[in-house]
């Protein structure tokens, strides 16, 4: 802003609100707000979200003076943290580069990248996020990378709904990579030499591909002359292995085990059911704190799911009882993974 670049400032705020705050922090931390007791972790979450909003509102106040002031006052009237009547009387936050934790930023970036790869794989094989899966395999380039991912593995697992991450130190033999030249990038540079270079790239071994990925470049000898290729000169893809699906972004590769075991299916059903009942709660106008009682006329496989995950379901939907009954006259018809059934959700004491 001191450089009179308001467009860049505005876009940076937009990006922070959208990709970091809303679609990462709040998404991943939702449960911290609605679950558990009002104690350390929850207070941390509230304080953190509060501070984020307060900062964002201050940063955006010059461009959007109304909304920022309205929300600022909503916040400040409760907390009285700032002794001003308007955000426009407050001080602009001062940036402190020393405050940054680069290593933390790196691993959070890894978590975001891995999550987005896994979610893209789920989309590709059409398995929704609510259906838990067993395992993600990540080939690692070095020990530091593994260490970093381990630190954020809980975030990843809950975000992508997978049970565990396994690391591969040597991807060869398990994940097969395909390589082809990036004609757009190379064509301009090479002209007539394009053809022999394309042929040479076509016969790259897995080892050569890994080396290129790791070093981000590789030197080819063509007609006795060295030619350097960089990562952008080629496109590397992975071949799927039966029961797995693979995605690549830069030098990050993930493989997702897409086998849905009966155990995982039951859990998936339970989660799906929770989602439907939450919607009923909302549609019925219940407060988020209202306790409920639920009756379900479940059939076949769903009965197993409900029985097995009864405690989990009750906890999620704030139910004091969850009863499986043979039939329900007037209830809400819902669908769980293509099986239709009826439920009745009643507010306790109502």
């Amino acid at each position: 802003m001191d450089e009179y670049e308001p467009t860049q400032a505005g876009r940076a705020i937009e990006d922070f609100v959208d990709t970091q705050l809303s679609n990462w922090y709040v998404r991943l931390c939702r449960r911290r707000f609605w679950k558990g007791e009002y104690e350390h972790d929850k207070i941390c979450a509230y304080q953190t979200l509060y501070e984020c909003m307060e900062t964002v509102l201050s940063l955006m106040a010059p461009i959007a003076p109304f909304f920022s002031d309205a929300i600022f006052n909503n916040l400040n009237q409760v907390t009285g943290r700032q002794k001003v009547a308007s955000i426009h009387h407050a001080d602009f936050p001062k940036s402190n580069p020393a405050y940054r934790d680069v290593s933390l930023e790196q691993r959070m970036q890894l978590a975001q990248d891995i999550s987005s790869l896994v979610l893209s794989l789920r989309k590709k094989v059409n398995i929704k996020v609510r259906q838990p899966l067993g395992k993600v395999l990540i080939p690692i380039l070095n020990a530091e990378m593994q260490h970093q991912i381990e630190k954020v593995s809980d975030l990843i697992l809950s975000e992508v709904n997978v049970k565990q991450i396994q690391f591969l130190t040597d991807s060869e033999g398990f994940i097969k990579k395909k390589i082809k030249p990036n004609f757009k990038a190379l064509g301009n540079r090479l002209g007539a030499k394009m053809k022999p270079v394309a042929a040479a790239i076509g016969v790259f071994s897995q080892e050569e591909i890994s080396r290129l990925e790791k070093d981000k470049k590789i030197v080819l000898i063509l007609d006795g002359e060295p030619l350097e290729l960089v990562l952008g000169d080629v496109e590397i893809n992975s071949e799927d292995i039966p029961g797995w699906t693979v995605a690549v972004k830069g030098n990050l590769t993930v493989a997702l085990d897409v086998t849905v075991t009966p155990e995982l299916l039951n859990e998936g059903n339970a989660r799906e059911l929770v989602n439907r009942i939450q919607k009923i709660r909302k549609d019925s106008g219940f407060e988020v704190t209202d306790r409920v009682e639920v009756k379900i006329a479940a059939k076949d496989t769903l009965t197993t799911s409900v029985a097995q995950f009864s405690d989990y379901i009750c906890m999620e939907i704030l139910a004091d009882s969850l009863e499986i009954v043979p039939d329900i006259q007037d209830g809400t018809e819902i669908e769980v993974n293509d099986i239709s059934l009826k439920v009745i959700v009643t507010k306790k004491g109502a």
Partner: peptide
Amino acid sequence: YKEAQVPLKERPEIDQWIIPPYT
């Protein structure tokens, strides 16, 4: 926000991460 502000280092990592680099 009646509780004392929790020092950043005592908060979960994701909290440390999201707080913008402003004092």
